[in-house]
Write a protein that binds this DNA or RNA. Sequence first.
DNA 1: GTTTGTGAACCGATTCACAGCA
DNA 2: TGCTGTGAATCGGTTCACAAAC
Lengths: 214, 214
Amino acid sequence: MTERSLPPPTLERLPVYVRVLDELARRGETTASSTRVAELAGVAPAQVRKDLSRLGTYGTRGVGYDVRGLAEHVRRALHLSDAHRVVVVGAGHLGQAVARYAGLRARGFEVVALTDVDPAVVGTVVGGVRVAHEDDLGEVVRSTGATTAVLAVPPAAAQVSLDALAAAGVRSVLSFVPGRLAVPDGVALRVVDVAAELQILSFYAAAQARPSTP
Amino acid sequence: MTERSLPPPTLERLPVYVRVLDELARRGETTASSTRVAELAGVAPAQVRKDLSRLGTYGTRGVGYDVRGLAEHVRRALHLSDAHRVVVVGAGHLGQAVARYAGLRARGFEVVALTDVDPAVVGTVVGGVRVAHEDDLGEVVRSTGATTAVLAVPPAAAQVSLDALAAAGVRSVLSFVPGRLAVPDGVALRVVDVAAELQILSFYAAAQARPSTP
DNA sequence: GTTTGTGAACCGATTCACAGCA
DNA sequence: TGCTGTGAATCGGTTCACAAAC
C-alpha cells in the first residue's frame, strides 16, 4: 500500500531518486547506500533515508538499498508502474517540442494525442501523432484514454482548455502558460513559467556577482 | 539598494507579484492592497506584506501600494530594470520553441543568439536569429553580450555546454536537461525537468482520485 | 475606519545523533 | 563494524495579531 500523502518537498525529490536509481542500475550497481544515492541526487544522506522511510522499510541495515527493488518501490509510490498517456493541448512550437520529446517515454509518459485550433495544423502529423482539432478534445481523450495533459496554448485560451480537459476526465495537467488559472475539482495542476525562472535566475546571478559586502 | 539575499520561497514569489502588478496596471488600477495582490497571486495577504517588506517600505498604511511604483521596485530587486540578453544553446525542437517564444521579451528577456552542433541547422534563421555553431559559443556570447542562457541540448552534451557557457561569462543558466550537473563557480543554474513534473502530478492525481479513507 | 509592517507564535521540514539490526 | 530507521533538536518560513500610520 502506498502512502496517501507525502510532504511536498519529499514528493518533489522522489523523481530524482528514481532517475538516480535507474542510473545506478544501468551501471550495474546492485546495492546502494543512502550516502551514494544522496551524492548523485545532490541532497543529504539523512534526507534520503527520511524520504525513503516514508514509503516503507526497504533498506537493509549495514548494507543499504537494493537498487532495482527500491526503484520499483518508489515508482509504485508515484503510481508510475504503468505508462501514462498524455495529450498535448496546443500544437505551437512548444507543444510540438513536447510531443517529440523522446525523454518522456523513457520515464513513463507516452504522448498519444495532440490538439490545436489552427486548421492549418490540424491533420498534420507531429512526433507520430496526428493533430486533432481542439473542439474534439473530449473525444480524443476518451478514445486514447489519456489521463494526463500538457497545456501549451496562448494565455487567453488556457482557462477554457483547462476546463475542457477537466470535463474530459483528465486528472493531471502540466501547464506552460503563465498566469493564475482556476483549478477544476479533481484536477492536479502544476505550472512551469519559463520567464519567471529566468527572472529568479536574474537575482541569483546578480547576488553572485558580488561575493561579499565590501 | 536592493537586498543581498532573500529566502528562496520569497524570491520565487516575486515574479508572480510582478506579473500581477503589471496586470493591475494594465487594467488601470493605480493602487492595490495586499489582499488584492494576494488573491490574484494565489497566496495569503500576510505573505504578500512580509515578502514586500523585505524589499523596503513601499506601501502606505490605510491605503495600500502604488501599483506602478511597486512593480518597478520589485523589478529592481530582481535586477530586471533592463532587459537581459539570452543565448539558447541547442536548436532542436525545444530550443527553437524557446527562441520563438514571444512571452520572453514581454517579461524582460531577449533571445539574441542560438547555437547548435548540427551543420544542417547552423546558418538557418529561427525567430529572427541566425543559428551559430556551438564551437563559436564564446564568440557569440561576447559579440551579443548575452548574460543568460537556456540549455536545451541532449543530456550527454549538457555538462560540456554548461562549462562552455561559464567560460564565456554567462552567469544564469536555465536548463531543460534532466540529470545532475556540476555547477561552475559564478553561475546560477535552475533546472526544469518536464518528466519529473509529470511524475509528481501522477502522485497528486492518484491521491485526489480517492478523496478520503473509506 | 483601513491597511501596512512586524514581532511572536506556530508549523513543518531538515538535520542530528544514536539505537537497532545485519 | 556498517548502515538504516527514527525520535529529538533545530532551523526557517508562514500565519497570527496588533500597534502604527494614514
